[in-house]
Write a protein that binds this DNA or RNA. Structure first.
Length: 188
DNA sequence: TCGCCGATGTTCT
DNA sequence: GAACATCGGCGAT
């Protein structure tokens, strides 16, 4: 069992994706509250791991509570947290944060002042937190990562279909923090 | 406010 | 050669 921030990362990615809402993610002290996630699994046609292991997705088949970082559309970085036991190819895409720590550094990296747009999307939050391939395969319980538990009482969740995919697009595997102004897109 | 489009690396057909 | 877990700029509404 791999437990971090009161979450069992050896569990199913759907469960981990729900539990991550409200957790604080910091990289070198910069980041904020996770407000939006999506679950992926090897049995899922939309997942990078559906067709098996490749050099790109190798860390998704590694130990849980590690990072999987990949390049999206040739120009952005996106980050997943690996779930389940090694070999399952499951993970959770971190899609949006409410910025709380290191605001000035994030504004500088993004070239943007507006707080609501600093981390509203997987590519945007990667840029704001300085995420690159250098973090691929890194453990989440060691520097530069910090995961801090969310509130003890359960948060109110929004649930909807995942964004930007064409396969398995009907699955309701996207989760958000109800009432948050920092989501990448609204839940309808 | 909405929708189209181009940028551009990696993987798959 | 096409598709892609995206984003920002542009023009039309």
């Amino acid at each position: 069992m791999t437990r971090l921030a009161n979450i069992d990362f050896s569990a199913d990615s759907l469960l981990v994706a729900r539990q991550l809402i409200g957790v604080t993610l910091l990289i070198d002290g910069v980041g904020g509250l996770i407000v939006e996630t999506e679950a992926y699994d090897q049995s899922d046609p939309a997942s990078h791991t559906y067709a098996g292991r490749t050099p790109r997705n190798a860390s998704m088949f590694g130990p849980p509570a590690h990072a999987y970082v990949y390049r999206s559309y040739g120009m952005h970085w996106c980050m997943n947290f690996v779930c389940r036991e090694p070999g399952h190819g499951a993970g959770v895409l971190i899609r949006a944060l409410e910025p709380t720590q290191g605001l000035e550094l994030m504004r500088e990296r993004r070239g943007l002042d507006k707080l609501e747009l600093l981390c509203a999307g997987p590519g945007r939050l990667a840029q704001a937190l300085g995420i690159t391939r250098a973090l691929d395969g890194q453990a989440l319980d060691a520097p530069p990562f910090q995961l801090l538990p969310g509130p003890p009482e359960p948060v109110e969740l929004l649930i909807g279909p995942r964004i930007g995919i064409s396969k398995a697009a009907h699955e309701l595997w996207r989760f958000g923090l109800k009432g948050s102004k920092f989501l990448s897109k609204g839940f309808t």
